[in-house]
Design a binder for these strands. Structure first.
Length: 137
DNA sequence: GCCAACGTTGGC
DNA sequence: GCCAACGTTGGC
């Protein structure tokens, strides 16, 4: 089991919309490092759903429901997408500021590479954030 | 193949 | 709205 974090601007695609849709194709990723993570995702892996720009907090958990396949929105056919479905919301959203305050999380990709939109999360980071979110799987 | 210019992301 | 970080583009 691997853990991940995906970002979305709520004004573009929010967690509420994601839940209302019952899942979505995670398309439009055009960064090779992010794409590498997409390709490493396995069916059943879990991913934090982070609201960037507005909110700046982790609001829920998504499950990978389909592994990487070609993203039809990429005309060159280079990039891939996965399918995600809602798993469960965080009982308490975990904000970026709170994450920055935790020494254990200072190496998390979210802080070290702020512009990356899809990134791995270590098991330790995952458990720490789950606890901060007052949420059990 | 280097590197300057430019565009985009996202926190503040 | 500004700006830092960083990926991409294009001239040489």
């Amino acid at each position: 089991m691997q853990y991940w974090l995906v970002k979305s601007e709520p004004s573009v695609y929010s967690w509420d919309q994601f839940v209302a849709d019952g899942g979505t194709h995670w398309n439009g990723v055009r960064n090779h490092q992010a794409a590498k993570s997409l390709k490493t995702m396995r069916h059943g892996d879990l991913a934090f759903f982070y609201h960037s720009n507005e909110g700046k907090e982790i609001v829920g958990i998504a499950k990978i429901s389909r592994e990487a396949y070609p993203d039809p929105s990429d005309a060159k056919g280079v990039f891939v997408m996965v399918d995600l479905e809602p798993f469960k919301p965080l009982k308490t959203p975990v904000g970026l500021a709170a994450i920055k305050d935790v020494p254990n999380l200072k190496d998390i990709c979210l802080i070290r590479q702020p512009r990356l939109s899809v990134m791995p999360v270590s098991e330790k980071e995952w458990q720490t954030i789950l606890k901060m979110g007052d949420t059990k799987l």
